[in-house]
Design a protein around this nucleic acid. Structure first.
Lengths: 209, 209
DNA sequence: TAGATTGTTAATCGATTAACAATC
DNA sequence: TAGATTGTTAATCGATTAACAATC
């Protein structure tokens, strides 16, 4: 499945949830296309790739589309994830519902600050990073979210890789090195802002090049 | 400038900073290409689009590249931005350095919780959302970061648009509606996790399709 | 000089849009 | 039935890679 389609399916899913909450039962390719600024044929091709079918005149069933997208992205299969680094951002994420929305189940929190170790955060006891290796092995944790300072990112990554982690959601502003079998998804907050910065100027100058 | 190039320039910038901190002076297209998993000719084309030139055998000057990317993205021109919604995520962002890294200067914080209004957060007094309109007008704020609950996102957006805001960094999991002249950059945390979820399965099943 | 790396053009690849017959 | 919308194929567009002469 091409990466571009995956990204759009995720966007469709968000919007379909909104439509369902408004009690709508069906959506047309043209409706989705207008919202996301793409052609309706692109939407139909995406939905064909997903294996969904619609009905001429009425469109696609919203519930069916949601279900298929969730299946395709493996969101219904909650994978165990650990959070490494309980700073401001880590704390905000720990208490959020992104984990289950994104297909994961937050099961462990690690930090190196002795003040934090042993405290309880959203039902999870904060553990020392020295316990990381053993805990991941014994708990069968598949993924990790890294919200540590840049300087700690690579050492923590190496530890995670050795412990057999399969996926990393990386918030540190660093390119971390991992072996080919480990999946890294970078979440770069600054990059979102930089894109906004660039687009605001292009917009205002009419320089759409 | 194509969106795909902008995204890569942002990535290059992050990595060039790392190289500079290691006291490296130059980088080759092949070096950058390997790191980001693209071809070296793509890197060279990106750098040509940026207006940078390199030297055969030695490569490109790191400091010059950084400077040109910062200029191209307008990161050196700090635009005034307001934060709307001081929940866990808003608080984490308020205290971070993403603003200046991304080309902005956080100048105002708004919330609707009376408990928070009047308190000081990272040198900024939290103001009532009812003051939003006037404050944005009088302070010349160009952009806003929305970290409010989904239900509040559209009303807050409408207010911001009326106040003349030019760009929105949206963390709420909603497609917000804005007129064409307003730039919206969505920061979807769940989508990052969903992509990780999908890629972890593709990876492990060897199903690279 | 020799050889690594740039700058650039042509070839390939993939993604998007256009178009339209099929159909509910 | 009539007409809106799907499913699908062909055409277009843009992005990436390959290749190589120029050059430091």
């Amino acid at each position: 499945m091409p990466k571009a389609i995956i990204l759009r399916l995720e966007s469709y899913l968000t919007y379909l949830g909104q439509l369902r909450s408004e009690n709508k039962k069906t959506a047309t390719s043209d409706e989705l296309a207008k919202l996301f600024g793409i052609s309706s044929s692109r939407v139909r091709q995406d939905l064909v790739a997903l294996g969904a079918t619609g009905k001429p005149r009425s469109g696609y069933g919203i519930a069916e589309l949601e279900e298929r997208i969730i299946q395709a992205l493996d969101v219904d299969n909650k994978k165990k994830i650990a959070l490494i680094g309980l700073g401001n951002l880590g704390r905000a994420l720990a208490g959020s519902n992104v984990w289950s929305q994104g297909g994961f189940d937050l099961r462990a929190i690690f930090d190196k600050d002795p003040q934090l170790i042993g405290t309880e955060v959203h039902g999870l006891k904060v553990r020392s990073i020295t316990e990381l290796f053993g805990a991941i092995k014994s708990d069968g944790i598949a993924a990790a979210c890294i919200t540590v300072p840049a300087s700690a990112a690579q050492p923590v990554t190496d530890l995670l890789v050795t412990a057999g982690i399969k996926g990393i959601w990386n918030f540190s502003p660093i390119e971390i090195n991992v072996p080919a079998e480990v999946t890294v998804e970078n979440m770069r907050l600054e990059q979102g802002l930089m894109t906004l910065s660039f687009r605001m100027r292009s917009q205002s100058s009419g320089m759409n090049k």
